[in-house]
């Protein structure tokens, strides 16, 4: 069962990463980037590393998304 979970999550991660990079709208791209953080959390927890999973849950899907959204707000403010 563990092998199936790892395989499935890796396939989902690869699809989400490719979709995040080829989106036209930057907002969609940033929200899909958040999905990469969530998939990484599942994988880290499956790999018996709960400390790393906690860190990735806070940073990878929380603060990184905030940083990208703030950058988007600033980069569009004067157009």
């Amino acid at each position: 069962m563990i092998g199936f979970i790892i395989l499935f999550t890796f396939i989902a991660l690869i699809i989400v990463a490719f979709a995040a990079l080829v989106q036209k709208k930057l907002e969609d791209s940033i929200i899909l980037f958040m999905g990469i953080g969530l998939g990484s959390v599942i994988l880290f927890f499956t790999f018996n590393a709960p400390d790393v999973a906690l860190t990735e849950a806070v940073i990878g899907s929380g603060v990184s998304t905030f940083i990208f959204l703030t950058a988007l707000k600033h980069l569009r403010s004067e157009q």
Partner: peptide, 17 residues
């Protein structure tokens, strides 16, 4: 430039995994 930073973050994440 945001897509470039995002690509670097994805590469970093893959190395952690």
């Amino acid at each position: 430039i945001i897509k470039v930073f995002m690509s670097v973050a994805i590469m970093e994440s893959s190395l952690f995994l």
